[in-house]
């Protein structure tokens, strides 16, 4: 159960090998979160992640998920709740593909797959989550979006727009569970130096995974719908989203 500071005791991470999500979980496990389920595509990597959290005293189960097959999303959610013992305080949705824009520009199959993993599967999982959370009478869902979702650009538009879709879906979904006392948050990290972004040119306001996790954990205990990391990006993007396209094109990063 959540405590007065909003700290969860149990969590289900869909996309449990995401580096930022794992850094977030490390911080939560050091506090009250001792019952963790990681749903992962690669169970070897999942077990490695699980060991890091076990070393902090958490009980961790690893279950498998397949983000390219949205018809499995409901089953993954169910298995996740079962592995947690029936009640989950915090669900984190973190599974995503980033890739290089070049790989998607002219590839219909790769484009479709990216949208499946980044948008369709998570949306299906949230549709499966909804009745469960309503029935359990409390809960908190945090969905990883990206600052890139706010305004797609040439260098990353496939990924960015897939996150825009999930971000918009989550905004509406949040309204649908609001009166039931379910807390929903959208996480919009800026550029994070991680294995996912290795070799990419970095724009201003970058963080490393640990700093991003610290910002996110602070955000999770607040009542804000959107968690920006670093928080200053909220103001930066207030401006950037209204820049004329010609200027936006020239922005670094």
């Amino acid at each position: 159960m959540r405590d007065a500071f909003g700290q969860p005791q149990s969590a289900l991470v869909l996309g449990g090998t995401s580096e930022i999500a794992l850094n977030v979980m490390t911080k939560l496990a050091m506090a009250r979160c001792k019952n963790i389920v990681l749903a992962v595509r690669n169970t070897t990597a999942g077990e490695e992640a699980a060991d890091t959290l076990r070393a902090l005293g958490a009980t961790v189960s690893v279950i498998s998920m397949e983000g390219t097959r949205p018809e499995t999303a409901a089953g993954t959610v169910e298995a996740g709740f079962d592995a947690a013992g029936g009640h989950v305080d915090l669900v984190i949705i973190a599974a995503a593909i980033l890739g290089e824009q070049d790989d998607f520009d002219d590839d219909p199959a790769a484009t479709a797959e990216l949208f499946t993993v980044n948008t369709t599967w998570p949306a299906a999982a949230m549709a499966a989550l909804r009745p469960r959370l309503l029935a359990q009478g409390s809960g908190h869902v945090a969905v990883f979006s990206s600052v890139a979702a706010v305004r797609p650009r040439r260098s990353l538009y496939t990924y960015s727009s897939s996150k825009s879709g999930l971000d918009a879906f989550t905004t509406g979904w949040a309204e649908s569970v609001r009166s039931a006392g379910i807390k929903v948050q959208i996480i919009r990290p800026g550029f994070v130096h991680s294995k996912m972004t290795k070799g990419k040119s970095a724009p201003p306001f970058t963080t490393d995974a640990d700093q991003a996790a610290a910002n996110i954990v602070a955000g999770l205990s607040s009542n804000k719908l959107i968690i920006w990391s670093p928080p200053v990006l909220q103001w930066v993007f207030l401006l950037l989203r209204h820049l004329p396209q010609a200027l936006w094109r020239k922005m670094p990063g």
């Binding site: 405590d3 007065a4 009478g137 409390s138």
Partner: peptide
Amino acid sequence: ATLAGWGNTAPSRA
């Protein structure tokens, strides 16, 4: 009903 204690910290539905 959404219920919480006097401190209004972690409400839940029942």
